[in-house]
Design a protein around this nucleic acid. Sequence first.
DNA 1: AGATAGATTCCCAATCAATGGGAACCGCCC
DNA 2: GGGCGGTTCCCATTGATTGGGAATCTATCT
Lengths: 264, 264
Amino acid sequence: MVRGYPRALWHPAAVANSPSGDSATDRLVRVLETFTPTRTVQTAADIGRRAGLPSSTAHRLVGELVEAGLLDRDGEGRIRVGVRLWELATRSSLPLRVRQAALPAMERVQARVREHTQLAILEQDEALFLERLSSPDAGANITRIAGRLPLHASSSGLVLLAFADPEVQERVLSRPLRRLTAHTPTDPAAVRRKLAEVRRLGHAIAPGFIEEISTGVAVPVRDRGGRAMAALSAVLPRDAAPGLALEELHRAALEVERALAEPR
Amino acid sequence: MVRGYPRALWHPAAVANSPSGDSATDRLVRVLETFTPTRTVQTAADIGRRAGLPSSTAHRLVGELVEAGLLDRDGEGRIRVGVRLWELATRSSLPLRVRQAALPAMERVQARVREHTQLAILEQDEALFLERLSSPDAGANITRIAGRLPLHASSSGLVLLAFADPEVQERVLSRPLRRLTAHTPTDPAAVRRKLAEVRRLGHAIAPGFIEEISTGVAVPVRDRGGRAMAALSAVLPRDAAPGLALEELHRAALEVERALAEPR
DNA sequence: AGATAGATTCCCAATCAATGGGAACCGCCC
DNA sequence: GGGCGGTTCCCATTGATTGGGAATCTATCT
């Protein structure tokens, strides 16, 4: 076995502590961000490529994270997000508290309406879904727990935006509004009108905004100041009448507001 | 304003990249571990003390984590676990998959038994609780989502241990067994007998092991190899008859086994 | 069976970002 | 106004981190 390597080939052009000004924390986050709801297992080399890290660095970092339990190495080679990370992130987080407060009410909605019932919050100018209950017989639904949807395109997003700080509304409406279907409103003026309607009615109806075949209906869970802390929503078949769902969602929202108002 | 400091007082005794051989990853994990189910908000100085970091280092690390969104700085000063960390940890983790597979069955148990219904997995030689459903009228319950209980003391833990690798059983039984109440079995031989009973009956009953006033009953969710992937459990008042709960839990476990066996 | 490709582990010199003691600053309370 | 605790800023020092490269391992193809 040959040990070492020809000294002449050593090329110190780029070596050091993180030559590009990213901290260890940044790199760690980039590694975690390579995992998505649809890409849950990857090789260490995959992670490195996607996080923009040299292969050997990626392998070392992944190894450390596995050691710490934040990532898990399954049978052979494949890496997934570790149970320990879930535990650390869940046991003291805001999403858990909101979810716990909302779950009983969501279950009642779910039992009566028998369609997808969802809970979302406003996070980084998108709707982040904290919980989703589904009957086996419910229709299509693109949302996932811990998944995101644009604010202007989803019924949940529309109520979150309608009852958010004006500053958030301006920021969101000043950026390009992505079109998901032919019915997604992408004109800022149209979205503004929609938001006014949501404020007037107290709920949002989004027929075909996300998927042609379904209609989202959502109501806000509001704090004492009137801002939306969360949105409760249901996903109905495109042609279904939204009356029952809206009624149940409104009732549930009241219940959640009370639960969240309690000291703990 | 005086800038700088007397050069003579500079004391290079301990300066550098992490003088104690802990990696950047270790430190980040230690920071995250300072949060517990009961301690959800802390100051940056608190975190530093508990993680064993010098104040200035702790403040910088916390600042970076806040910047990255893994931690949140609320109104003034207090730090909590960030929504973003929850999102990253949840969206592709094993606990979510197990939970999703089990939730419908758990809801039915919950509706019929009307007591606490729980889901746990084996993690690092403890029972880690992934989900918990509770009626408002249900009794006391010490468990929390993302909380842990010892394997020998909880009904969930006993089924997880009874249907685990023998190697795990040996390891757990070779360590001191913590006593939580007067009824907690702390003698290895007694626990061994209990485990044999659990294997024979296919369920565990733990009267007063955790809290004097309640009885835990649990059944395993088993894989094709017979090992317990998870435990479904209910917490009943100490004197309640466990028959109905066990029947419902067994039915639910079958359903969860089928759901987890499906490709995805 | 041999070749090829990709993932992973190991090695090690060079370095620079992270480190931590100290000091100043900022509120808050007694 | 003085004490206390949290936070921010400063900066010389240095060792942990870094990343090319080579060796090793593991599939998959021909």
